[in-house]
Amino acid sequence: MKKTVFLGALTAAGLVGGAAAAATLDDVKARGTLNCGVTTGLVGFAAPDANGVWEGFDVAVCRAVAAAVLGDPTSVEFVPTTGKTRFTALASGEVDMLARNTTWTFSRDTDLKFDFVGVNYYDGQGFMVPKSLGVTSAKELDGATVCIQTGTTTELNLADYFRKNNMNYEPVPIETNAEGQQQYLAGACDTYTTDASGLAATRAAFENPTEHVILPEIISKEPLGPLVRHGDNEWEDIVRWTLNALITAEELGVTSANVAELAAGKTDSPETNRLLGTEGNLGEMIGLDADWAVRALSAVGNYGEVFEKNIGEKTPIGLARGLNAQWADGGILYSPPFR
């Protein structure tokens, strides 16, 4: 007799699901929540805190989109995905967008039929070793045992790097960052490799972070960014320009503290006005209302604020802005103009 629950649930799910074939924006609005794919847990980027509330740099992007579209940064359903499940989750529509430190590559953009909406973190793959090992350069790692997360571009970069430098290594494949951390700390591998930001985040969670160094070599380009399904251009625009709004806001000096004040009336800067919807009708053009950017910004703050709050130098993760500074400050963060 218990099969009925199952069938009942199935019918219910079918009825809910039946409506999901329309455009993503309508789905999200109808559902009232944004389904956002994140990692299973990487402190600083996306991890649940002690109360189960997701926090982090990638999480902030999801919250900003939710605030822009739904008006509520908390109406986000975070779907933890592994390297293996993330693309299927997005392709099957289980999530509306993926904000899971995913590297923008040619084949992912074209062959896997996704669209990267931009770059929220310019990263590169690095190595972390215990200080006691006495290694100062990745070139000295010949013969080392390397812990590596499977299903990521890091795996391919690693193979390329060692082959190019004619070195041997012993890969120890691991599924999640948590496992990598355990293996590395237990000494089951000499070095742990992943994106430099991820290394910093992982190191921050160690008991004695100072006993580990991140080697200077960065062996790859890893532009990380949110992505959406290919083909739904309206939704893609919304996610893209929400990200750009965060970046532009920093450039224009709009913060979560002053956004309400600036949005109250017209300012001297026309671009600020356009961004905050007091001038022009940019919101309308992407299918939202005029206040969309105001909501996003007051929910999470501008790019700089998000960075400082989650992964910046004052946090345990302690990443410098580096490449991720605004273009005017010597970085390569450059948002197209709001016009």
């Binding site: 390297g83 293996k84 992912r108 062959d111 299903g151 120890v172 494949p173």
Partner: peptide, 19 residues
């Protein structure tokens, strides 16, 4: 445990890398 059997290679890394 990261032992590279057929689930680890074909069903794991190959699946991930090629999609």
């Amino acid at each position: 445990v990261g032992y590279m059997d057929v689930t680890g290679t074909l069903g794991g890394i190959t699946l991930n890398q090629t999609g």
